[in-house]
Nucleic acid binder design. Structure first.
Lengths: 327, 327
DNA sequence: CCGTAGCGGTCAGTTTGTGTCCGCTACTGC
DNA sequence: GCAGTAGCGGACACAAACTGACCGCTACGG
């Protein structure tokens, strides 16, 4: 039998059972020398268990907070929030579902019995919106690394292979040099909002395509994001001007509908009121026919402001729809 | 570092998180050979942990119930998952963001310092998809009450006011009598999947409209959901037959595109492969023109299978698009 | 009846664990 | 402040274990 491993677990339960354990007693109980006990305690500490020790007479080892002692004082709402958030984590963020499940069982352990029961009773089924399976998985370590750079305000270099749809460039693109400002999740995908030092402009990078290079660069002083609000910036990024690989097509139309109605039905895009039953809509999409199709959703007369490609797409779709309407 | 001992703890943690773990997957996760995984499992069994295993295809390891686990600690991945899940909780579930934030600070307290720093460094901005603000807030207490009924298998009576869009009925509808089976979140909304005793059929209720009545009824024996899988049932509910207030229009078309391509671009809906470049798509929407418009996104020839309303909608949209294409 | 997946034996090479010995430091009580 | 106690940790040599590779075997499901 593997004496070392099982002894470690035994040591854990001994430390759990009593407040103070002199090293000599532990040595005897575990059948090893005091030196080995000290080594085992070290190992536990390396694993993260907070083992406190006191020197001098009445010294000894004791298991500190963090694993058992103070049952975590959650109120009911916190317990519900924890459970729901961890059980549905996969819906908004791919790639961490299993870690989230483990985290839930871990916190469960340090809860008072009453809350533990609540957690057990709360079983949530999070149904993915279809298409979620195709979302890229993001490594927790990568998230951590990027966020650490944001937090430390350290310049970040990374490789960023172009999207496969992009035209093949000549040779390997040089690494990006950036000042990372925000880590953002939007629609189940991760983005890094950063100032691109070479392009001297803000960029929104897909986290799953980022390959960080070491070492990180010097510290930088954060700039102010245009508009100040990250959420607004990112939301606008996907509807406004063409970003790197995002919304290659962007068009402008006038709809015979109240601005209120249109914005209620519009996920992204900019709506501007022109009259009680008339508004301007600027919207982005991956392709011109796609954009034209989306604009058809509004069941209202459409006047194309531009660009011409959008007009052509409407003509294209009109032909296709005419054909589809034939029995 | 004692790789063997910590690996045992990691193995325990993994086994807790999921029902079934193929040996090969565990081997990869732990960074050892499958042989060593088998040995580790043996060790756990020697230490008294009930690890069940199944041979053959779909085999794997699973942790039996009932054993007292050693105090497990958060590892790096759990810390990241916890932080991300709690910071982005509002994205998938409205109404718990504040409780989630408080829960995070509470959990933070029982983490080793190293992980605490990681948590602090991980700052995530969760950007709502537009339209999320209109999502109804759901009370944690209500979720808890419903989930408790599901867990306890107690029949549930509740008032369920009809959607405001429905025709005004005469008088107040009587309370629903149901056998609640699953609590489901989908696209930021909450649903209760239950067997409606009066209608003798399955129903999907919007949680935010449910007003429970007390007391709850007697215990019931769960029925089997058609198809067995809740996720599939709910997903189908919103794309298939008309549910309560969901997807009033549903149509079927054949597209000249590979099924893979279509499902990659389809949030909801059922895709069926008909050939290498041909597939059937069943999709739901709020209106016929809306459905026709969405189908235009795929930039492929469309053959309408039915219903006739969809064909008409295509003709309607064709006229509109022709007009829009005029300068 | 075949493919998958868990089971377990053997073996060699290497890593780790262990006890012993020893000097050091922190705390307590006298 | 001085002794005694108890935890800390380096060094070292020997023993034990762990690990991966390779093997054939057994259930199970289709």
């Amino acid at each position: 039998m593997p004496t070392a491993s099982s002894r470690l677990l035994a040591l854990l339960s001994l430390l759990q059972a009593r407040r103070d354990w002199p090293g000599a007693v532990l040595a005897e109980r575990l059948g090893v020398s005091p030196r080995t006990v000290r080594r085992d305690v070290d190992r536990l500490r390396e694993l993260g268990y907070p083992v406190a020790s006191a020197k001098g007479p009445d010294g000894g080892y004791r298991l500190g907070a963090g694993s058992a002692l103070p049952p975590l004082l959650f109120d009911d709402e916190q317990a519900v929030a924890l459970t729901v958030a961890l059980q549905t984590a996969a819906t908004s963020v791919t790639g961490i579902e299993e870690a989230a499940a483990r985290a839930l069982t871990t916190v469960r352990q340090v809860m008072p019995a009453r809350l533990r029961h609540r957690v057990d009773a709360l079983r949530v089924v999070a149904v993915q919106r279809a298409g979620a399976a195709t979302k890229p998985r993001v490594e927790p370590a990568l998230l951590m690394a990027l966020s650490a750079a944001v937090h430390a305000r350290e310049e970040l270099r990374f490789d960023y292979p172009p999207a496969p749809t992009a035209a093949p460039a000549d040779g390997v693109p040089p690494p990006r040099r950036t000042q990372p400002h925000h880590l953002v999740t939007w629609g189940g995908r991760w983005y890094l909002v950063a100032w691109d030092l070479d392009r001297a402009d803000w960029r929104t990078f897909r986290v799953d395509r980022i390959r960080p290079r070491t070492p990180t660069g010097p510290r930088f002083t954060p700039r102010e994001l245009p508009g100040g609000d990250v959420a607004a910036y990112v939301a606008g990024r996907f509807t406004g001007a063409t970003g790197p690989g995002d919304w290659p097509c962007r068009g402008e139309v006038i709809l015979d509908l109240p601005a209120r109605t249109v914005s209620a039905w519009t996920r992204d895009g900019v709506v501007e009121e022109l009259g009680p039953d008339r508004c301007r809509l600027v919207l982005g999409a991956w392709s011109w026919p796609g954009l034209a199709a989306v604009l058809g959703r509004y069941d209202a007369d459409i006047e194309v402001v531009g660009p011409p490609e959008l007009r052509e797409a409407f003509a294209h779709l009109a032909r296709r729809y005419t054909a589809a309407a034939q029995p």
